[in-house]
């Protein structure tokens, strides 16, 4: 008999804390003068959990590079945040192998990334990354540390 895979009840999930670890934008006037630069993004994500505390932690870092032909290739911003979530009875999400189902990590990862996307956008006004919006990525791309051009 096939054991039913636990399903996530989204009403049991809540964000408990968002902690910035690094917020840094280099805003040299030279960078502001560059017309239509392209941007590349490097993402790093580590999903973690604490079963006893019913807690999930997503460590998410984004670094932004500005490029302009062969003239410029510089890392101009780094954002690194820890997102903490609470899921009532996290044990309910253990599968038959005793592992927490990956769906909850995908949900938390997507929530964290979209939140960080908003944070970066609101912090980037009047800086060299003002018009650069983090791309929409899939959970898979997040896991792979997608590098996207904008």
């Amino acid at each position: 008999m096939k054991i039913k895979k636990p399903k996530i009840d989204i009403s049991k999930l809540s964000v408990t804390q968002i902690i910035p670890k690094t917020k840094s934008i280099v805003n040299d006037p030279v960078l502001m003068d560059i017309k239509k630069p392209t941007a590349s993004f490097q993402l790093e994500m580590t999903p973690m959990f604490n079963l006893a505390e019913d807690a999930i932690k997503i460590e998410l870092s984004v670094s932004i590079d500005l490029n302009k032909g062969k003239k410029l290739h510089a890392q101009v911003a780094v954002f690194s945040y820890d997102f903490y979530y609470q899921y009532n009875n996290l044990k309910d999400l253990l599968d038959e192998e005793g592992e927490i189902v990956s769906e909850i990590f995908l949900t938390c990862s997507n929530l964290s990334y979209s939140t960080l996307r908003g944070i970066i956008y609101s912090n980037s006004a009047k800086t060299c990354i003002e018009n650069i919006l983090l791309p929409i990525v899939t959970g898979t791309q997040l896991m792979e540390g997608a590098v996207k051009s904008h």
């Binding site: 902690i19 670890k21 690094t22 840094s24 934008i25 280099v26 580590t46 999903p47 973690m48 959990f49 604490n50 079963l51 505390e53 807690a55 932690k57 460590e59 670094s63 510089a74 890392q75 101009v76 911003a77 780094v78 820890d82 592992e99 927490i100 990956s102 990590f105 995908l106 990862s109 899939t138 959970g139 898979t140 997040l142 896991m143 792979e144």
Partner: peptide, 27 residues
């Protein structure tokens, strides 16, 4: 190149959390 990067104590909290056993194909 990106300025001052401070690593806060939150990194040390990592000890209380275990990394999720995920594979790239899971998502």
């Amino acid at each position: 190149a990106s300025g001052v990067i401070c690593k806060s104590a939150t990194e040390q909290e990592k000890a209380n959390f275990s990394p999720a056993n995920l594979h790239k194909s899971d998502f």
